[in-house]
Design a protein around this nucleic acid. Structure first.
Lengths: 224, 224
DNA sequence: TAGATTGTTAATCGATTAACAATC
DNA sequence: TAGATTGTTAATCGATTAACAATC
């Protein structure tokens, strides 16, 4: 494992056929990564991709990639590689994340604006349907397609818009109380861009973004 | 492995004494994560921390944490836990990243501003010593402590300021040419916040930030 | 002392890799 | 055909975990 892990559920290997067992942590993590590279490769007009190319971009061994994929079917063509389009839809099917998922974004500062105007989430079926801030001067401002709302609307909006994920782009001090409100409102996944260590009930997943950790890690191998 | 991996160097287990062998990928990754939690715990005034608490925040098994640490010395006190301050400096010593490291930031948009004004890097000894943009209207603007410079100064600044890491907060289309310039200038670590798939020589490490990948992964375990 | 938590062992399981036949 | 790349096997290595004595 490596910086950026999330949950610790029970491991089960996927059945070779269409069985409904859970993927192991590792497989699910790697498939998500392949999906990101494939999505971008598709944008760049690439039609096929080899396990070696996928390996170059993900730093996952090419044998492992072929092994991961062949567990679910024969998606590749020998001598050619994998069709980008069809592999994208296959992996989406395996991860069962083919649909649209709604996100609420908290904090309309520089980071919030950067996230709202990026299509990094949109590319993967995540839609930012609401942006919140506590600053009344920001409330009403348009960011992208939606207007900034006040945090007091949190509970209503989470319910009405079927929010699955809360993204926190707020100051460290504001993060824990906000996380509490999100938990209260029934949100099960919190994406934390602040530095706060969040305490949440076990059924809620927190992912804390940690670029500095990734840098430290890269630097170690650079320095040695 | 999991979203967020970086390099693929040779593995070697650390010697129990002060030998200079390379850490294995996994150990280096986990130590970096412990460091992040410890740094934040220290800010919150915590003096000691148990392997169980570290486990709650990092999702790494507590036995594994004790095992990782005990390979380098007896840092803990039975019945009490680990002293936060001393563990921070021990891990910094192990990772050999105790010093200051200079970063150049590219892109003075929302994301660039968010990064420059955050102390997420500063907390770990990374200093943003230069901010670049190609937009001449932005050149000269003050962001945090430093003024925005034009990309044409890249080579000079990298040399003068001993830049180790280039952080790309630029549009996807601008990323590859910029990466080429950075490689040319001798930068060995590139932190890519764009969606571009960057092609670089093997001695250069690219880390692409992928929040959507992390979300997909979290969502899988939520949906199943 | 009593409770808590480390340090360490031993056993298991999954990840990783090289190698290569199959085949496009 | 010749070259490339998949799918798969087999062997190895590291990660993970439970358990518990040591000890603060």
């Amino acid at each position: 494992m490596t910086p950026g892990d999330l949950v610790s559920p029970t491991d089960t290997e996927p059945g070779a056929n269409g069985s409904v067992e859970r993927l192991s942590l590792g497989v699910a993590a790697r498939l998500s990564r392949y999906l990101q590279v494939l999505t971008q490769a598709k944008k760049m007009g690439k039609e096929t991709i080899s396990s070696q190319e996928l390996s170059d971009y993900t730093h996952v061994n090419s044998t492992q990639i072929r092994r991961d994929l062949s567990g679910f079917g024969k998606f590749g063509k020998r001598g050619v590689g994998y069709n980008v389009d069809s592999l994208v839809s296959q992996i989406r099917k395996i991860l069962r994340t083919a649909g649209q998922h709604n996100i609420a974004l908290f904090g309309a500062g520089h980071l919030g604006k950067a996230i709202a105007s990026s299509d990094i989430f949109a590319d993967h079926g995540f839609r930012v349907v609401a942006i919140f801030d506590t600053d009344t001067r920001k409330v009403g401002q348009k960011i992208g397609t939606s207007a900034v709302r006040h945090n007091s609307e949190l509970t209503t909006v989470v319910e009405e818009e079927e929010i699955v994920v809360g993204v926190l782009a707020v100051p460290t001090a504001a993060a824990q109380p906000l996380a509490d409100d999100l938990v209260e409102a029934g949100v099960k996944i919190i994406f934390n861009y602040s530095e706060a260590l969040l305490d949440v009930p076990p059924e809620v997943t927190v992912h804390t973004s940690s670029p500095a950790v990734d840098l430290l890690y890269a630097l170690y191998f650079y320095l040695t």
